[in-house]
Simulated scan of single mutants.
Amino acid sequence: GRGKMVVTFMMGTRRLYDFVHDNPAICMMPVSYVNDPFVISQNDNVVSINSALQIDLMGQVCAEAIGLKQYSAVGGQMDFVRGASASKGGRSIIAFGATTKGGTISKIVPFLAEGAAVTTSRNDVDYIVTEYGIAHLKGKCLRERARELIKIAAPAFREELSGEFEKRFGEVLLV
């Protein structure tokens, strides 16, 4: 209903459970409703924010595995990305730290790890955000996508990613 917080599950502290208990502002609904892109899109200005484990230079997002090792599940990422995209004024954001393992591994990579699943296709990606900036990928060609992603990669990895850019596009990218 209008003016309510619609949720499909919650997990948290005693404070959260006390807040939810008998709260008329909370509307618990099944995942088949909450994650339905058609239902999501009926709200104006939806902003979906999801995370990722890796993103390649084409803009493909993996949010569920590290190579062949399953780490998480798909969840509602695609549902909310597509629902936000169809929402009037909506947008979707994939936000994550640019590195892992204490800054030694880039999460922006030339290619997803072998065996990794594509959770969100490059055609569905709108914004990618790291601590180094924002890349707006929607509607951009592969060259522009790669350029945008390299700009928001951790500085220690930009030269390596630029080398891949040069191999693919025959253009030197100054970082």
Rank of each mutant, 00 (worst) to 15 (best):
G1F: 14
I152M: 07
C62I: 04
L57C: 06
S85M: 12
R2C: 07
L112Y: 13
E159L: 11
V74K: 10
G75E: 06
R122D: 03
M10H: 06
G133W: 10
A146V: 06
K4H: 14
F38H: 05
D56L: 02
M58L: 14
S87A: 13
A73G: 15
F38Q: 05
I49A: 09
V175R: 10
T100F: 11
K151R: 14
G89I: 06
M58V: 08
T100C: 13
K138M: 04
Y132C: 10
F38L: 09
E166D: 04
K69N: 13
G83Y: 07
I134D: 04
P155N: 05
P24R: 14
L137H: 07
R15T: 14
F19N: 04
A156C: 00
F9Y: 13
I150M: 07
N45T: 02
E160M: 12
E166H: 09
Y17C: 01
D126Y: 07
Q54R: 12
G83L: 08
L57H: 05
T13M: 06
R15Q: 14
A63K: 02
S32R: 11
L149N: 04
E160A: 10
E131K: 09
L53S: 01
T130V: 03
L142N: 08
G103C: 06
R143A: 08
S72R: 15
V31C: 03
S85P: 00
G75P: 08
S48R: 06
A65R: 15
V31S: 13
K101Y: 06
R82G: 00
D79P: 02
M29N: 06
L57W: 08
S92R: 02
D18L: 13
D44I: 07
L53D: 01
V129D: 03
A153D: 02
L137N: 06
M29Q: 14
V125R: 03
G1R: 15
D22P: 01
V34L: 05
